[in-house]
């Protein structure tokens, strides 16, 4: 669960868990976080928490709400964001889920319609309005339809209706430790220090002498509808694979067939009558 750490002049005053759907901040006593200071408006700002995400909204305060030094009207809070109101600072800290529970929690779950209504009401802009008199706090437990964890080891369940039909096709990599439960980014894990960069140098033909850095994850080589192969960049190495054409590409004089072929530095590739050398730059 996420929390806020309230401080002034680097002195920590309080820690507040964001366990409610709406956490209000202001000078007046009815606020969840009351800051009794004239620079703070009566109702200054609100933090709306929907399951794992929290949104900060300024309630048209006189002196404004700042996030990481920028004035903010509405802001989707990220771990370690610093909210400033007058001389007060609120640091937003989102604790990573337990390693064990993480995988379970990330599984797709259905949000039941009753929960949905709440979320949609908020999404419809109600969060901008003054807080309704008494709003029931949202239950932060995972949605009802997340099935409970299995109590015992899986005893084979027989289903006559449907054998799951999913023969694996891709080469399944050997099991590796689960990656850290860090943010669910769609972005590929950025270039790690040990990522290799390869290049090819054309040895024959009209482009002889030209070098091409293999920065992209896929580089196609050859002539469409004659002979095409693709160089794929994977975390630690490069692979050459035949895509189309009657003839397979040659690596060091040997045809590679239909399988992906891992390249070593200084391998000689021959494709559509052109020779080129693959090498690792760094």
């Amino acid at each position: 669960m996420a929390k806020l750490i309230l401080s002034m002049d680097n002195l920590v005053l309080k820690e507040i868990s964001l366990d409610k759907e709406r956490t209000t901040i202001g000078r007046k006593a009815h606020n969840d976080i009351q800051i009794d200071n004239l620079a703070i408006s009566g109702e200054h700002a609100v933090i709306v928490t929907i399951l794992n995400d929290s949104f900060l909204e300024d309630l048209n305060s006189t002196n404004g709400t700042f996030v990481n030094g920028q004035r903010a009207q509405k802001h989707f809070l990220q771990n370690n964001d610093v909210i400033e109101l007058g001389k007060y600072r609120l640091k937003y800290v989102k604790e990573a889920a337990q390693p064990g529970s993480q995988t379970d929690f990330e599984k797709t779950m259905v949000l039941r319609s009753d929960m949905m209504r709440k979320a949609v009401e908020q999404a419809d802009g109600k969060l901008a309005e003054a807080a309704p008199a008494m709003m029931a706090p949202v239950n932060l437990a995972p949605p009802i339809h997340a099935a409970p964890p299995p109590p015992v080891a899986p005893a084979a369940v027989h289903v006559s209706a449907a054998p799951p039909q999913a023969p694996p096709v891709a080469a399944t990599p050997e099991p590796e430790p689960a990656p850290s439960p860090a943010p669910t980014l769609a972005v590929p894990p950025a270039e790690a220090a040990d990522v290799v960069l390869g290049a090819i140098q054309v040895l024959t033909g009209s482009n002889a002498g030209r070098t091409l850095d293999l920065v992209k994850s896929l580089t196609t080589l050859g002539k469409p509808s004659v002979q095409v192969a693709v160089l794929t960049r994977r975390p630690h190495s490069y692979f050459l694979t035949h895509v189309e054409g009657a003839k397979f590409p040659l690596v060091n004089g040997t045809a590679i067939g239909t399988q992906a072929h891992e390249l070593k530095s200084h391998d000689i590739i021959e494709l559509a009558g052109v020779k080129m050398e693959f090498f690792i730059k760094a």
């Binding site: 929907i50 399951l51 990220q78 990330e106 797709t108 339809h145």
Partner: peptide, 14 residues
């Protein structure tokens, strides 16, 4: 921002 959301896994219909 959606790429950084923790609520990716919640579907509203199933």
């Amino acid at each position: 921002q959606a790429r950084y959301s923790m609520n990716k896994n919640l579907v509203t219909r199933g």
